[in-house]
């Protein structure tokens, strides 16, 4: 107890220099105890509903099941099965392709939107309001909407582009394109919002001096805007990549995972609900967890870690 009091005072010394106000003792908890008490519920809940299931999934994945009936200990057999399963590799490939393609397209379109909105003084409020609409629309609704627009009946997109009865959702390749397109529609505005916030922190005199030095619009974009926008770009890319790797709603609703559009999330969900095999499903979910969290962590440690942590601790 005495030790704690001493360290608490040391920490307090950094925050309040010199004459510090008398630390109130009556009734209230000390700051350190209060801190622990405040953080505890969040940590406990996240541990119980996020961390524990992951460990439990690993335990499940070591058992052999027939339907929901446990048959015995199977060791790593479920993992061996998964790595020998073409369906798993197909889902992994689609998930990665979807992530790379959609994040790249969303970044380019989002950057374009943000630059347009940043240029305009009139109409920026209106556009910024409009840009929230795709964000607020549930992904399932966006998926249904684009399903009908791409579908052969009523065939809206086919009519607009004069494509006759082109079956977007019924063939490999184009089905992937349609799913990616729907995602790009829904989340490009969100990326634009994040980038616009970054753009607005760039002081105007940077461009003024750029103009004085004879830089053209593209040079200003390349040498002034993009370097200064780097933090915002990194955060947007991190958020989007992690989200895109989890993709479930769009392919589930638009194609049901057919025509090479089965994502890892759809695959795992299949083995839990439709063709139940808890052991194999858990093995697949553990692999997905490692892949997705692994990519996220690499991303964070390479690019975003300092950004996010600095911001929240230093201020």
């Amino acid at each position: 107890m005495a030790d704690h009091r001493a360290t608490a005072d040391d920490d307090g010394g950094i925050l309040v220099n010199g004459d510090k106000p008398p630390r109130p003792k009556r009734g209230g908890l000390s700051e350190r105890a209060l801190g622990r008490l405040f953080v505890a519920p969040s940590i406990l809940l996240m541990a119980a509903v996020a961390l524990f299931p992951v460990i439990y999934a690993f335990v499940l994945s070591l058992y052999d099941y027939t339907r929901r009936q446990r048959e015995g200990f199977g060791g790593l057999q479920n993992y061996a099965d998964a790595f020998a399963d073409d369906r798993f590799w197909g889902a992994l490939w689609f998930t990665l392709l979807f992530t790379v393609a959609s994040v790249a397209a969303e970044f380019l379109i989002g950057l374009g939107f943000a630059l347009i909105m940043n240029q305009a003084f009139r109409g920026r409020g209106l556009t910024r309001a409009a840009i929230l609409i795709p964000w607020v629309i549930p992904t399932v609704i966006a998926a249904q909407m684009w399903f009908f627009m791409f579908n052969v009946t009523p065939g809206f997109i086919n009519t607009v582009f004069g494509l006759g009865n082109f079956n977007w959702l019924g063939q490999e390749g184009w089905a992937t394109f349609a799913v990616i397109f729907a995602d790009v529609w829904k989340t490009s505005p969100f990326v634009a919002l994040l980038l616009l916030a970054g753009l607005q922190t760039i002081p105007g005199d940077m461009y003024e001096s750029g103009v004085v030095d004879g830089a053209g619009p593209f040079q200003r974009l390349w040498y002034i805007t993009l370097p200064l926008l780097r933090p915002a770009i990194l955060v947007a890319l991190l958020f989007r990549t992690v989200e895109a790797l989890r993709v479930y709603d769009l392919p589930q609703v638009m194609t049901g995972g057919a025509f090479d559009t089965e994502s890892l999330s759809i695959l795992v969900q299949q083995y839990v609900v439709r063709t139940p095999d808890p052991g194999y499903g858990a093995a697949l979910s553990t692999i997905s967890f490692v892949v997705i969290l692994g990519i996220g962590m690499i991303f964070v440690s390479l690019l975003g870690r300092e950004l996010v942590l600095e911001r929240t601790t230093e201020r």
Binding site: V54, R246, Y248, S265, Y271, S285, F289, I292, T312, T313
Partner: peptide, 21 residues
């Protein structure tokens, strides 16, 4: 904070089989 960040990177699909059980 790193722990919180790790949870925010967490794929919900990892919860589907264990939580279902």
């Amino acid at each position: 904070l790193s722990g919180v960040l790790a949870v925010s990177l967490f794929p919900p699909v990892a919860l589907v089989p264990p939580l279902y059980e």
